[in-house]
Design a protein around this nucleic acid. Structure first.
Lengths: 222, 222, 222, 222
DNA sequence: GATGAATGAGCTTTCATTCAT
DNA sequence: GATGAATGAAAGCTCATTCAT
């Protein structure tokens, strides 16, 4: 999926029954330290010294687990992809009220995306994308694209069931996603403010759903 | 407007007859060099050495015009704000076809925002926003917010004229802006691809306008 | 013989029936790895990591057999002394044609000394001699000096037998040895070229023998 | 003549009337520091930290004058070549006593070659030759080869003048040079001892000249 | 005995910044 | 005003060595 090396320098994993070997523990410490430092300072701004200190290991140990700063960064971003993708919840296909499903989904998505940690990730990855295109691409595919694909699939089901009237489900998915996120996400990306109050988010989602339903609600029932 | 120093160290401008004095020339060279280097490498990734070389001046000269790397960066970003704001064209209030105005505006906006240079600016600023909040805020205000305000004002006029039916013109402005940009901008931010072909952009704009008009076209005709 | 530690940390050798015990095997592996790495990279340029990898043992094992990098290096050089000394073949005392004996010896010596491996050893030892005088001395005694002593002893026999007329056999031995080696050895030491073709070596030896015989052939027979 | 870069990173030399610009002074300091440190510790054993300290400049300054450790080392060795070649004195073509000329030359050569500094240079260069073949080659050409060429030219003149009978002047030159140097040079290379007492050197030279004259003195007197 | 994870000092190199000219 | 030589702190990374298993 990506053009970058994959944990290449990690100590060989013997994979015995999932027991936490010392190296697993160190690996977790290192990635956690890297997460804190890289997301706060960006790739160029972070120093391996800081990573080591925050992770609570020696500088040398970092290089036992990862070949280079870049390799550690890439491993971290991949780890974050995984988490990101896992956070995208399922849609309740059984629920007949499509607007309700979209509202729930939209709110969950926003609560996740506006977390300072996620904002930091977006910032860091987009900045790094100029240097490491593979990282940007992998993140996009695991994040925005993956989410849009899932939503489009949901739309396709609902269209089949007669609950929505959409000619291009992919386009509709992107339209919906962008219309909820855009405003608050941009504000936070550029560091305008603290996360907005929940009501503000809910209102933004509600308006986006209204707009969406106004356009894509089946017309023929009337 | 911003909490950061303002060209503080630039040589006093005596502004005689608008003729290009040597220091103006140097200043322009430096900012041009800074633009090339900072936008390519980010704040942390850029070195003053590179800036000096690309600008064609000595390293010492940089510090004659700007107190520090940070001051130079801030001056650069402010310069870019100015250009950005200037690019946001006026709306043709006289044109009765609102959809046509929106299409023209949307296309012009996208052509500008998807330029690799602008993408680099967005990346650089959002990354820097974690370190220099003032810079992020200033950019947001001069860019996205300024554009949204102008669009909202246009909407307000059209509502007054009966050409649109919008209760919250600010929200409508953001909805419109995000629904055009989101998809392609994100793809480029994460380095997915070259600028999309003009047709793709036109199609995205057309769809956004359709959606917008479906929701906000005055209903009284029925 | 030398002022440096002597295999101090090697596992005690119980020497049972000469069978290859595991530790003997490891020891051989380690010394072979050390030989490859130290002769290629020099003492400072070599890393224990590389030695371990090339030897096919773990880094820790190195320190089971040798106290330190320096101790391993010294052990290696001593091992090489032994091989070097063993290579210096006997002289055929029975052969009446002294010139023939010298030619054979000279050719054998040169073939050995110009082997890339031996050149690497000379380079490495002479460089290390500044840091570890004992190593340089031991090598000199086991190599050049040992060879000269053997040759001088042969000369003494021939003088006694009336086949040569030499007043200072030691000096004569050094003169002979240097006049064969010098040119080609220096060229290879300074990396001028691949080993010279056998004919070139044979010619150099022949000339040296001629010169030697011209000076030291007994004059009174005529 | 060599395949390595030539003072590439040194500040541009404006070469005005040989006046000592500040950078010339620093350059000399740096090369002097490098000489002390590299010749004492070898290329790998030396650290740029030590060079800076001994030279009395900051570490950063080293990199203003030389791109890298390797570049500094190469510049140093080239500087030493120059000195070496300059030390090889002319032969007194007018002196009719060839043996006397050879003795004087031999003694001067040995006094130079056995200086601890020169020994250190030989060690360092031969060790470095494995890593940087260009350096070894350049040194060989500027040193041993250059000297042998000069001596061969002198021989050619004397042959023409009837003072010597030599068929291969090149070979004769190498034979002579090696037979004086070999013994003492090797002893010092392998760190056997302090420089030998002058008498020992004179004796070695005298014997070499005797041997040489025995072989190459014109035979037509009989 | 053998391992390899872990260390911290030290390596080469870069960088933002200063200052005499 | 403009320069570029000089700096020292800090960067990424390597290494000889140790120690629990």
């Amino acid at each position: 999926m990506s053009d970058t090396a994959d944990f290449a320098s990690a100590p060989a994993e013997t994979d015995r029954a999932g027991s936490a070997r010392p190296s697993d523990e160190k690996m977790r410490q290192i990635l956690e330290g890297a997460r804190r430092v890289f997301l706060a300072d960006g790739f160029d701004g972070a120093s391996m010294n800081d990573v080591a200190r925050v992770a609570g290991v020696s500088k040398g140990t970092l290089y036992v687990y990862f070949q280079s700063k870049q390799a550690l960064f890439e491993a971290l971003i991949k780890e974050e992809h995984r988490r990101t993708a896992e956070r995208l919840s399922m849609f309740d296909e059984a629920e007949p009220d499509v607007a309700l499903v979209l509202k729930r989904f939209g709110n969950a998505l926003m609560n996740f995306m506006l977390m300072p940690e996620h904002i930091a990730l977006v910032r860091t990855v987009s900045a790094a994308a100029a240097k490491f295109p593979g990282i940007g691409r992998a993140f996009f595919e695991a994040g925005p694209q993956y989410g849009a694909d899932r939503l489009a699939a949901y739309f396709a089901h609902q269209v089949e069931a007669g609950a929505l009237a959409i000619d291009d489900v992919n386009l509709a998915a992107y339209q919906f996603l962008e219309s909820i996120q855009g405003f608050h996400l941009k504000r936070m990306l550029f560091c305008i403010c603290e996360p907005p109050p929940p009501q503000a988010v809910e209102r933004a989602v509600a308006r986006a759903v209204e707009m969406f339903m106004a356009v894509y609600r089946p017309k023929q029932l009337s």
